[in-house]
Nucleic acid binder design. Sequence first.
DNA 1: TAAATTAGGCAACATCTGTTGTTTATCCAA
DNA 2: TTGGATAAACAACAGATGTTGCCTAATTTA
Lengths: 193, 193
Amino acid sequence: MLPNPKEVEEKLDPRVRRTRGLILSSFESLLAEKNFESISVQDVTDKAQVNRATFYAHFQDKYALLDYAISQMFKQEIEKRTLNACHYTPDNLRNLILAVCDFLSNIHRGCAQPHQQFESLVEGTIKNILFQLLTYWLSQSKVKISTEIPATVATWAIYGLASHYSHMKKRPALEKFVDEAFPLVAVNLEQFA
Amino acid sequence: MLPNPKEVEEKLDPRVRRTRGLILSSFESLLAEKNFESISVQDVTDKAQVNRATFYAHFQDKYALLDYAISQMFKQEIEKRTLNACHYTPDNLRNLILAVCDFLSNIHRGCAQPHQQFESLVEGTIKNILFQLLTYWLSQSKVKISTEIPATVATWAIYGLASHYSHMKKRPALEKFVDEAFPLVAVNLEQFA
DNA sequence: TAAATTAGGCAACATCTGTTGTTTATCCAA
DNA sequence: TTGGATAAACAACAGATGTTGCCTAATTTA
């Protein structure tokens, strides 16, 4: 199973957990109001009622904060759908694609005017987790895998599809979209089923 | 054929061309020395011997400058290989994959310690051009295309592969790598050949 | 519970950012 | 060739950034 970040958090100094929680929720509520680019570290710490210097003790900068926030949310999504403790099957892949499309759509719905830079950062974060997960899935397969190429292609294809879906002006029903998209990803993974 | 940016540049005020050229080459030489994150607008304009305010008359910020620089370079690469005036064939696709892998490897070789943010930005820029090109290719096909899904998946898969290749510690020969990677992209485009 | 450790508050810093108003120079078209 | 248009230089601005050193308060642990 993939490492669970909560277990690591559990035994933290309560002051740290409190501070991080304050920063996180301040940040999330700011993201709903204004776009990422225009949120300053000052904004975050003001709303969180935490000193600005304290922020820098926890995160390198606001980009690291975004990375952390998105990671947490996405990993929760994966766990909720129990995709983190399984292996490759067409059905699991289908659900994974659904999960990413859904997650990204919600991000774009929930965040004010998502901009280029914001999206790039989210993308990097999600793709890392996706690749880790797919690599884990494929490692369970009886078929010996010599390269990371299949997991790479699948990761990028899935994220690309989700990104495409979440940007469509007139989105078709999610199920409909995934029906069409699924085979393009699956064709390269069938050998591992 | 895809729009050629040089034609647009041609008739610019010579002062503008001079300034942009200075900024560009200053930026490129700085990229070879230090990583993108640590380059300030001040650094760029100092080396270019241009006023900082002038910079902002040309580019919104350093991210826009990066986008511009990478676009220019990549489009040149595409033109050099005459991939910008053709249609989908397995051979063209092969060359396109080669081009992207090659380009990205060179970027990573030429730039000091490329970092997360830098790579995200490069990625967005290249993917836009790739998608435009593939969409153009497929529009030439006799097969009617109803969605952008195939071009999307191909774009992301190709970039993903190139990114993967350029990050490998021990890179196999480029030809070798593309032999292995090519079918995973082609399988979804065969119908347009 | 006392001592040692560590988090957070606070203040101040040099630097970078994006923008504006003014002046000088360069360019182009009539 | 000269006059109108526009690019670039310059100076100055308010705000944001990342970092530091010092002090207090909370938490562990022995």
